[in-house]
Design a protein around this nucleic acid. Structure first.
Lengths: 232, 232
DNA sequence: TGTTATGTGTGATTGCAATCACTTCTGTTT
DNA sequence: AAACAGAAGTGATTGCAATCACACATAACA
């Protein structure tokens, strides 16, 4: 499926580029519909593409040496992945998997390198985005330092809410929420434990499931309070 | 203390820069001796400097909302930190602390930005280094997915060994090893649990303490085996 | 519409590591 | 050399979440 300049402008990192650069990137990119559970980036392999998520939800998943799945990060619409190997030809250990039906733009790394050569502004944008990514990884890791399972789940939901697009954020909606299992591997919790925390949160009218494609945060202050309480 | 071109060349990211660029960077940089427990980068604040570690050991430390210390990463000699805010003027949540007496070169971010403008090679080096950092953060996080405390500690020691300079690596030496407490906060373990694991490893002649500045890895295969065994 | 697969929910059991309090050892300072 | 501070070591107790097995609900597919 063809990629247009307008489509690429939806991504904040690309939006400030001149149309001529966007046109070149668009011509070399492909928009694909990927189904739930599809592998978007293969772990371990060098990725030839950057993957921009237009709609859906992706998750970076690694495996420990004892075979456990470890969730490293989620990718929300408007974000991308696959950029680590841009200059060092090395891949990333984790796979990136679609958690729900998604639309992904695959953009060749070579095209991005060319654009970087001619646009210092893109260099700064990419670097800034990498910095944001490092901060998010650190915040994600800090969640694991919480000893309370309720605090950990609430912290994850809070982080996901903060990363929703402005409309969903305003309405307290998390689009395409991950399953309990997918949340569990982010937080080193079994899916039963995540289920039990959700039971508590729903009983207290803090969250409410709205079908499988939306999770409603009914009480943001309550959620944040449980996150900040830590060991209550 | 004055910084020389030769000193800066010890850092792989800077070594390929032309002497004229290195001279400019050197003139604006400062080498400081910092004592154990000194704060090298203040968490939350925008850092005006990049901090290059010449000798010693640094640790990035954050706090969870319930007040627990969380260790995010170690910094070995030859590496640096403080670069996240280069272009977005935002800081990092974690503080960077010296774990042992260290020598750190403070290099103004403004000087690095200037160098980046004129050196695409430095852009690539910095980006590649950020990618490496993301991979390390992911690997660090994956350690927390191991359910066995022995595997987790052994994994941490293995990662630290791999990051030693070639001489120490060859000899199976970890220089300036962190305390059990400092290791514990990296791995979400209490310092008592880390001590008990070390007891086991020393009893099995896998590791041996050589004073406070060196930890000897006597049996690398044994260490790696315990790491890879996961849930033994 | 019925069947199948996936996700959520539930209850019981058990093991492991956090916690606490304390002692011993080692390095630093006076 | 003695005193002090910090780090390592030790033992007992207890709580919490992983694990397991299973049932129920919901979504997807034929």
């Amino acid at each position: 499926m063809a990629v247009t300049i307008e489509l690429l402008k939806r991504f904040s990192m690309l939006s400030a580029l001149p149309d001529s650069t966007l046109e070149q990137l668009a011509q070399q990119s492909t928009l694909k519909n990927v189904s739930r559970r599809a592998v978007v980036v293969n772990g371990g392999a060098v990725s030839e593409n950057l993957c921009f998520l237009f709609e859906g939800r992706l998750q970076g998943v690694d495996f420990t040496l004892d075979g456990r799945e470890v969730g490293l990060y989620f990718i929300e619409p408007g974000d991308f992945c696959g950029e680590l190997g841009l200059f060092d030809q090395q891949g990333q250990p984790e796979s990136v998997i679609a958690l729900s039906k998604s639309q992904v733009i695959f953009m060749p790394a070579s095209a991005v390198r060319s654009a970087l050569q001619s646009s210092h502004q893109l260099v700064e944008s990419l670097f800034t985005r990498m910095a944001t990514r490092v901060r998010k990884l650190s915040a994600q890791r800090a969640l694991l330092g919480l000893s309370s399972t309720v605090a950990r789940v609430c912290g994850q939901l809070w982080m996901m809410l903060e990363e929703q697009d402005p409309n969903n954020r305003k309405d307290g909606v998390i689009a395409n929420p991950p399953t309990h299992q997918e949340l569990g591997i982010m937080l080193n919790l079994s899916r039963e434990t995540v289920t039990r925390v959700f039971q508590t949160l729903q009983a207290e009218a803090i969250v409410k499931r709205d079908g499988t494609t939306r999770l409603l945060i009914l009480n943001e202050q309550g959620l944040k309070g449980l996150f900040e309480a830590g060991d209550s």
